[in-house]
Design a protein around this nucleic acid. Structure first.
Lengths: 206, 206
DNA sequence: TGTTATATTAACCATATGGTTAAACCAAAT
DNA sequence: ATTTGGTTTAACCATATGGTTAATATAACA
């Protein structure tokens, strides 16, 4: 698509991303987005026709960028250990750079799982390089070859995604429980990746 | 507190729990809660004075029940392996029985981390049986004794909580990615617990 | 029965909010 | 200079929604 063109439109998308991330769909205010984007509220409707339209646009964009990067990892010769290293690394790094992503995705996932899942299914259906469910089939074969301990690809992936994504949702929670605050975010995420990769490899690699 | 007394009040809390879980704070409608509870909207304000009041009441109640059960696990003689087994088991079982809990907690955690964390800190501060930060100190000592591989208690706990809680938030997501649906929820959660416990023990136990 | 404290409701109210519209602005093309 | 097409705005609109109130029902109790 035309990227840097329409700077107004881009600014709106940026502002909307922040607003939706902070307040969720229902809590987001069109006027707040407009103000934050430095334009009139009507512009939002001019470009995106409705709140829902704006929201879905962002969701697709976010998910698109996300899946594009994920796909880059999934090379045909991918080994289990590499997946367990690269996935959390990419995931945590990507989300650390775009904190809004996690929150938007999480908000939507909680509120209306089917919506996001539909979008994801759509994106995935275009990634047909390796057949219908390439990743899951490959994971299954890893187990058949005795490379990994978890027999079910669903749980295998859930373990990887859970450890990666929770770094963001759960950070404040665990901080509150422990009564501590992490000193620097960078340091925290570096150690987070190390811990996750370590647990995954020791935990699921045979 | 007076438990079964005030059946009207209880019905409102029940209905509100569902509504907040489904739509989050901003998306929840007072009238929808009233209708669902079979009473007039004014009753909500009569008992809870405001939407915020109703919400906070539920949050405290949910978190209270939650932490009470968590605390029951944390016996003074708790061993690392037992924690890794009992925590996911309890967590997943508790949340499977009360799907609203996860969603409410997650919604709130995403939208306003400080709020929930404040409540949690308050509850925790009453659990002073073992000193100020009993759990985290004990985890640290486990590592010093060479029992576990993860040196940082924060990451140790995050790994446990992440794997447990994500079972609910992420289930639909991973289902969508895989293109499959779990047959029975009970079977799914049983296998989920097994997988989580396995990864944790293999991954972090020395 | 009359009194009282608690529950419960219908009817309102003020405001916030998503969405619309008609007019104006502006840059490029003619 | 005029047209033209996209862009931008101020002023509105209809409705939804959190919250209030005053009146009424209900049950306990004296």
């Amino acid at each position: 698509m035309k990227k840097d063109k329409n700077p107004g439109r881009e600014k709106i998308l940026l502002a909307a991303q922040k607003e939706f991330a902070a307040r969720g769909f229902a809590g987001a205010r069109m006027e707040a987005i407009a103000r934050s984007a430095g334009c009139n509220k009507a512009m939002l409707f001019y470009y995106f026709s409705s709140k829902e339209g704006l929201y879905q646009t962002i969701l697709k964009e976010v998910m698109g960028e996300f899946f594009t990067k994920i796909r880059a990892i999934l090379t045909p010769d991918l080994a289990p250990a590499a997946l367990m290293e690269k996935f959390p690394e990419l995931y945590i790094q990507l989300f650390a750079g775009h904190p809004e992503f996690v929150r938007i995705v999480a908000f939507d996932l909680i509120h209306d799982p089917d919506n996001l899942c539909g979008i994801m299914a759509g994106i995935i259906s275009q990634m047909t390089e390796f057949g219908p469910h390439p990743l899951f089939e490959r994971i299954r074969s890893w187990h058949e070859q005795g490379l990994i301990s978890e027999p079910d690809p669903l749980h295998f992936m859930m373990n990887i995604v859970a450890l990666s994504i929770f770094s963001f949702i759960g950070k404040p929670m665990v901080e509150a429980i422990s009564g501590t605050r992490v000193a620097s975010d960078e340091e925290f995420y570096r150690r987070r990746v190390a811990s996750v990769v370590n647990v995954l490899k020791r935990g699921m690699l045979k």
